[in-house]
Design a protein around this nucleic acid. Structure first.
Length: 882
RNA sequence: GCGGACGUGGUGGAACCGGUAGACACGAGGGACUUAAAAUCCCUUGGGGGUGACCCCGUGCGGGUUCGAGUCCCGCCGUCCGCACCA
């Protein structure tokens, strides 16, 4: 037996070499064929691949191989999202240059990916930190800048005073820098932005057309863009002398129907009016400082109590000049949404209600729910936000909320104090990073000419290599000479922009670059027009919002600058689930890795023990693989032990791809056993199907030319051989359908079924069985080929085919074998299944009824009662109502 | 709080348009082979009852629509995810 084991790790290297030598997966660029672009989100070169990559790239590879076999010209490239902070962190920690660190990681990970046997076109590989790539990105930036899609403005940033650097929100923990631990300051810095808000509406509307995107992602993006229609209302201010600019206060609202319920105004602590007032009030200045302090911590803001500061100012109600409401500075009003000022209507907004209760302000209901009495309707602890009719509201009384909004908007617009307006939650994309390991922003600052783009002929602006990471701050900023240059316009001494791009910029157009990765322009228009959009994009749900939204924006911006001819980059999107694993903890409370643990199945269930000491460890929750919980499994270990095909097969088999999968040793073993089982099966069948060589193996092996293979079965097939043929062709239909729909777990189940059918049929020696077995096993190998590609080749060769399985066309089922003449349907009595009926597929209603009523189980269940009705659903079910 | 998804055996999960619930796999139990183990093969495996053919119950809980509901509708309970003072 041992001799008949398939030695996966050894044979996999062989087939990888064969594919590479023959250039099997080089993109054909054959205009005769229909194109198919399948792309997985490219990895960050962190050092080693993890199981999440294995899952992601296996799925993409199955699709790529399947589509190739279907006759598509497939583009399936790979690259590296190679800029970013970890390289700089490594530089600081280990004194290694970010470039060296990054390219070494890439080399390691490339080798790991190659060991997976992915059908990638490696000739198109690039890293975003390659000068050749970021050179093109700088060109794109200049084009965007000229179109007004990139601009500079001051913005508040999280500043770490020790590291002397800007921190991303997620790097601020409890108001302190994640590395330094120093309290983070809010600083105003000049920053670069992309004008993504210019496309807010378009990005939102186009979501409807993305039919092959998960509903969930579309919803998330829609919420992120957060469009709301409302009204800008201008109020006059009284009570203090104010400079002219500040005498009017503009607010944005979506509930202008409740204007008659207004009882206060609130402005943001960062509002210009606040700033003006704070100059004359120490107490207000202190209040503002307090709000700012709270503002640095995301958590603190969450449940912070509503607080206000009465300014002494009053706003005049636009429709009732006699009515004046107090103006507060309030900590819950955001400066960067709307106008940074609101009017408060406590009866119909929960926040306003809490605020009003705290400061003793009026709560006047103006929307009355259907059926309630306006005279007695009162607001308690909860604001009423539902539908109803207006009351206490002058000309709006009796109108519905929608009608009242319309009437109010019309009235205020006519008076010149209202303006219909659309607001978005989406803000412009801040792309400046004060870091070294990123694409330099190709701009020069001249004391006389101001902001001057680097002339195109001077591109690329490359990163200096001689940088140090021993001090905090941006190495580009403190480099002795790099930023010193001359103004391209006036020739005077000037400085380079030292900000680099957010790495999301790099990943926003890489899919377009893959179409022609060596082009002298960012995108080769002809290649992009052929290949884009990406037909199937596969990646993690964590990129549902930012990466995918930025890529959608980039595609539009690149269209506006003539680089692309389409709006949406990804026609189909699939988001795969995570890879999880059990966690283990020893008695001391330390996390233990799966490699250190032995699992025992006892009567009380599963127990875990340390291999080294036999100490029992507690089995904890199944969680996402992470270094901190030590519940990771290294793909290379698995590949070395079982082979890549086993890892791939397991990744596809257990869970629906969009859901999380739990990596288990038992599951891997099961996958490995299945592979060995098929191998043994072929070994056992070899003598029988070799005898049929002329009929199936030889004839099929001789087939050439990309079409599907015609097989002519012998005319004397017995019923058992016929049944096997049906099972095989059904499996072919089902697996094809499941791969098409990315339901890999179901495809695997159907392959198992076919394997079981072959195993069972193997025992039979009835007429034609040898031929049917040869056909079934051939189809089996073809079906599992995209999932276990090396093993597929090995089996294909063993079946004496003289082609590469990777070059084989996908087989087509024989339609005649997919319909049965005789079918078995259930027969119910009063909705309960009592028997089943095997009958000719095309039997008529009367025939079915008569046969059903004669069944033992049916007669017993009716028990002599009167039959009221018989429902016959052809080829489905019979239900006798008695 | 708002938005969304989901809830099926010991486990992961199947079940198309409302039509035989539990495919397929893992795990478990029993048996064969073996000196023994591993590997492999065979049988059993939702719960309960019956010698048996069979019968009853069963898809988170409670109702409803229907000849028929895991699937549709209403109301709960629970889990997960996203957003979170967005005016």
């Amino acid at each position: 037996m041992a001799a008949d084991r398939y030695d996966a790790p050894k044979r996999e290297k062989h087939w990888q070499r064969v594919w590479e030598e023959r250039g099997v997966f080089r993109t054909a660029e054959d205009p005769e064929k229909p194109k198919y672009y399948v792309l997985e989100m490219f990895p960050y070169p962190s050092g080693r691949i993890h199981m999440g990559h294995v899952r992601n790239y296996t799925m993409g590879d199955v699709v790529a191989r399947y589509k190739r076999a279907q006759g598509f010209d497939v583009l399936h490239p790979m690259g590296w999202d190679a800029f970013g902070m970890p390289a700089e962190n490594a530089a600081m920690a280990q004194n290694v240059h970010p470039a060296k660190w990054t390219y070494e990681n890439i080399a390691t990970m490339r080798a790991q990916l190659k060991s997976m046997g992915l059908s990638l076109d490696w000739e198109r590989e690039f890293a975003t930190c390659d000068v050749a790539y970021y050179h093109q990105q700088q060109k794109l930036f200049l084009d965007f800048y000229e179109k007004g899609l990139a601009y500079r403005k001051t913005a508040k940033v999280n500043w770490d005073p020790v590291e002397k650097t800007v921190l991303a929100n997620e790097q601020v923990i409890d108001g302190k820098g994640w590395r330094s631990g120093a309290p983070v300051e809010q600083r105003e810095l000049m920053q670069w932005f992309f004008r993504i808000t210019a496309y807010a509406d378009e990005l939102l509307e186009a979501l409807d057309g993305l039919e092959r995107w998960p509903e969930k992602v579309r919803t998330m993006q829609a919420n992120w863009i957060g469009r709301s229609e409302g009204l800008l209302i201008t109020w006059d201010l009284e009570g203090k002398k104010l400079p002219k600019k500040l005498q009017k206060l503009e607010v944005f609202t979506t509930r202008h129907d409740t204007l008659f319920g207004a009882s206060f105004m609130a402005i943001s602590p960062e509002h210009p009016l606040t700033a003006h007032l704070a100059k004359r009030s120490k107490r207000l200045a202190a209040f503002v400082a307090e709000c700012r302090r709270m503002g640095t911590s995301e958590e603190a803001i969450e449940r912070a109590e509503k607080q206000g500061f009465a300014t002494g100012l009053f706003a005049v109600h636009p429709l009732e000049p006699g009515r004046k409401v107090p103006v507060y500075v309030a900590n819950f009003v955001l400066m960067d949404y709307g106008t940074g000022a609101i009017f408060g209507c406590p009866a119909h907004d929960q926040r306003d209600l809490e605020f009003a209760r705290k400061y003793g302000l009026d709560v006047l209901p103006v929307v009355i729910p259907e059926g309630a009495d306006p005279a007695t309707f009162e607001i308690g602890d909860e604001a009423y936000v539902g539908p109803g009719r207006l009351a206490n509201s002058d000309f709006l009384d009796g109108l519905t909320v929608e009608e009242a909004k319309e009437a109010m908007a019309a009235r205020l617009e006519a008076m010149g104090v209202g303006k219909r307006s659309v607001n978005y939650r989406l803000r412009d994309w801040l792309i400046s990073r004060q870091r070294y390991w990123g694409c330099p922003i190709p701009i020069i600052h001249c004391p006389d000419c101001g902001v001057v783009p680097v002339p195109r002929e001077d591109l690329p602006v490359t990163l200096p290599e001689d940088v140090t990471f021993d001090k905090p701050g941006n190495p580009l900023e403190r480099h002795p000479s790099w930023k010193k240059t001359k103004c391209p316009q006036c020739g005077k001494a000037a400085t380079r922009e030292t900000d680099t791009f957010d790495t999301f910029v790099d990943s926003s157009w890489y899919f377009a670059r893959f179409c022609a990765p060596h082009a002298e322009t960012p995108v080769d228009r002809q290649a992009a027009d052929r290949w884009l959009p990406v037909d199937q994009y596969i990646g993690g749900i964590e990129h549902a919002i930012l990466h995918l939204l930025y890529a959608r924006f980039f595609t539009r911006a690149m269209k506006a600058t003539g680089h692309l001819g389409l709006d949406e980059p990804f026609a189909g999107l699939f988001t795969q689930g995570m890879v999880n694993h059990e966690t283990y903890r020893d008695k001391a409370g330390n996390w233990r890795s799966p490699q250190e643990v032995r699992i025992v199945h006892s009567e009380e269930g599963r127990r875990a023990f340390l291999k080294e000491s036999d100490e029992e460890v507690t089995i904890g929750a199944v969680e996402k693989m992470s270094k901190s919980k030590r519940n990771t499994v290294d793909p290379s270990d698995i590949i070395a032990r079982f082979g890549a095909d086993t890892a791939r097969w397991f990744m596809l088999s257990d869970s629906p791809p969009e859901r999380d999968v739990e990596w288990t040793e038992e599951g891997v073993q099961g996958a490995w056993r299945f592979q060995q089982r098929v191998w043994r099966l072929i070994g056992e069948l070899e003598p029988r199907i070799k005898a049929e060589a002329a009929g199936v193996v030889g004839a099929a092996g001789a087939g050439e030319g990309g079409g599907h293979r015609e097989r002519t079965p012998p005319s004397d097939l017995g019923p058992e051989a016929e049944a096997l043929r049906r099972a095989a062709h059904r499996a072919l239909r089902d697996v094809s359908r499941d791969i098409e729909g990315l339901r890999f777990n179901r495809a695997v189940a159907h392959i198992h079924e076919l394997t079981n059918a072959i195993s069972a049929a193997q025992k039979s020696n009835t007429p034609g069985m040898d031929w049917a077995l040869a056909e079934a096993i051939t189809l089996l190998i073809q079906l599992l080929g995209p999932m276990m590609p090396h093993f597929g080749e090995e089996c294909w060769a063993r079946l004496n085919y003289n082609t590469l399985l990777a070059d084989e066309p996908w087989p087509r089922p024989d339609p005649a074998l997919l319909v049965d003449d005789m079918i078995t349907i259930a027969v119910q009595v009063n909705g309960k299944r009592r028997d089943e009926l095997t009958i000719a597929r095309d039997a008529g209603r009367e025939e079915v009824e008569a046969a059903a009523l004669k069944l033992d189980g049916v007669m017993r269940a009716i028990g002599g009662r009167e039959i009221k009705k018989i429902i016959v659903v052809p080829q489905r079910i019979v239900n006798v109502v008695a």
